[in-house]
Nucleic acid binder design. Structure first.
Lengths: 334, 334
DNA sequence: CCGCAATATCGAACCGGTTCGATTAAGAAA
DNA sequence: TTTCTTAATCGAACCGGTTCGATATTGCGG
């Protein structure tokens, strides 16, 4: 493989001259630059990443930490990953994907060894075990998901409270007074997925304010439990006229469940939910819903992270930013 | 950040001694080893990846090249990625995820710069533009998907021909004589997704052998086109008693389509398909199907790749391996 | 008691870049 | 013509590991 020394030899200059030609940090005569460029393309030279990283302590790689919990419904994860990868490349970074079951240890490994210049943590929980490691690392990080303490961290998440209020308002405005709420599965609450209770609590609070009833239930993450549970909720609340579904697995299965039950939407039941554009398309979901905007979250996470990498001191304190939810009316309510 | 020199100083030995203690390539006295280990954990020392890569020209990172085609149905991709990442870690490798739109150039970049020790190419097409680059790279690669020439490459794929034969046999054995086949969308054929025609051609051939009729159609990848097209196929072949669906998007939408059409499975129509266990679970699919086994494909791809990295000369010629399909009967035929 | 092999450790070179200070040449100012 | 800048380039040091050859110490057979 060609090294910078080969380029230098062929171009008849020193290694440092080649380096400066490449970086543009010192002026180079046109003639010399031409010869260097010629040599580079003749040799197909690309600087060795390890050597460069060693000297500059910059790898131009970002770590992307995912967790795949058992019993989790996976399809939505990709929605975050791709925009993150795209935005990273846009900024000159590659992505090291880390899925180790032991995430804190993996995070420690990739930061200590200097494999990455920063990390994006997806699916951050209330008391996320990766955070102590991240706080001790020399590289900055950006989180998607809200932890108990955001002290010193770049945090991004959908404004689930506002999303809940929008949906309750929407249903209340249409006259609904008894509403079934399907939250994420119980184990998501227990694991500390803050979005689960942030959404539920806001919905309950809003309902109390209006003096209407919202009946919260835990969703299931797999068939046939999903169908069984949804049917049970509907049986338990025969007077409910609307349903809010805050659970990927349940909403994906809902069309089939309601169909087999003979429930028409929105004539018999109004349905609203929370999912991304792509998710809705993949599962052909026809429901009025708040966009979860994983693409915007992912992109902004990378942007915040890159900004912090460039300017570690931090022009300002780290940001905790909640993305404003947007309701898309698909006519599943009335 | 602690370096090997710090460890050496604290342990009162030379840098090389620390290195040998770490690698075990020379004998070290118990006492010295103890002091070194103590120093290492006291400092939280982890060898710098760049420095190590520079000297050993081994990064312990594998590139994973994905392509996200426009209009593609994404959820299945994750099914390959996770087992690949897991198997890589199992072998001590991390994964660099590369999703650049310009895949050949990205592949060139990560191989020339020495960021990876090898690459896994997913979703390889008949005339894949990444292959010339891979063949010119100094790192080995493993493919998932069958290209026109497998010369010098490690290639893995499901045996789609055998899968088609199994499904046709299954239906033929039950007495079906007119069968609708929904293939992948036309653009998949055009792009060179060999699995599309390998499956279709084998199915047609088998049908011809039995003297029965298989009517092939291109599937669609998005709603509402999916529903429209499936309905059109059923209308066009009112005498068909069975359907083979070789298309993720169509099979995911099928339950809803058949339901709204009032078609019962298997009483009115027998349905067989091709999808992974997880995919079926995510979409609650109740159909008898051949397992596409993305986990086995991904794992084996990594294993072949790692073997080749360890032994570049190659104990044997590169392997082209077709995974045997396995039919799971879920009672959607009769 | 000597010579030799095995064991344990050290010092130096090297991997392939980047960057600092020095050097030379050319042009501008005096 | 001399002096001072500025532009263009070079050489050497350095980043943090690994590894080769050399050296010092110890144990053993003869």
């Amino acid at each position: 493989m060609a090294t910078i020394a080969d380029v230098a030899r062929i171009a008849g200059v020193s290694r440092s001259t080649v380096s400066y030609a490449l970086s543009g940090k010192r002026s180079i005569s046109d003639e010399t630059r031409r010869r260097i460029e010629e040599a580079i393309s003749a040799l197909g030279f690309t600087p060795n990443a390890g050597a460069r990283a060693l000297k500059t302590s910059q790898t131009m790689v970002l770590g992307l930490l995912l967790q795949f919990h058992q019993d989790e419904f996976a399809p939505a994860m990709l929605e975050y990953m791709l925009p993150i990868a795209d935005e990273a490349r846009e900024n000159g970074y590659d992505i090291l994907m880390v899925t180790d079951a032991n995430a804190p240890q993996a995070l420690d490994r990739i930061t200590r060894s200097g494999m990455v210049d920063g990390v994006v943590l997806l699916d951050v929980t209330h008391d996320d075990p990766r955070l102590p490691v991240l706080r001790g690392a020399r590289q900055p990080g950006a989180l998607v998901g809200l932890p108990a303490s955001t002290e010193g961290l770049e945090v991004l998440d959908l404004d689930f409270g506002e999303a809940a209020r929008q949906l309750v308002d929407h249903l209340y405005g249409l006259g609904h007074r008894e509403i079934i709420l399907i939250s994420p599965p119980k184990h998501v609450f227990e694991r500390g997925g803050a979005y689960s209770w942030r959404f539920r609590d806001a919905a309950m609070e809003r309902a109390a304010k209006y003096g209407i009833q919202v009946f919260p239930y835990f969703g299931e993450s797999r068939q046939p439990a999903i169908a069984v549970s949804v049917n049970a909720f509907l049986d338990a609340r025969p007077n409910a006229t609307a349903m809010i579904v805050h659970n990927d697995a349940s909403i994906a299965a809902l069309p089939a469940i309601l169909n087999s039950r003979g429930v028409r939407v929105p004539d018999d039941l109004s349905v609203v939910s929370l999912y991304s554009k792509n998710f809705g398309r993949a599962f052909s979901l026809p429901y009025t819903a708040v966009e979860t905007a994983p693409d915007r979250l992912g992109q902004q996470a990378v942007q915040l992270l890159v900004r912090r990498i460039m300017d570690p001191a931090g022009a300002g304190t780290p940001v905790t930013r909640f993305i404003a939810p947007e309701l898309t009316d698909r006519g599943s309510t009335k």
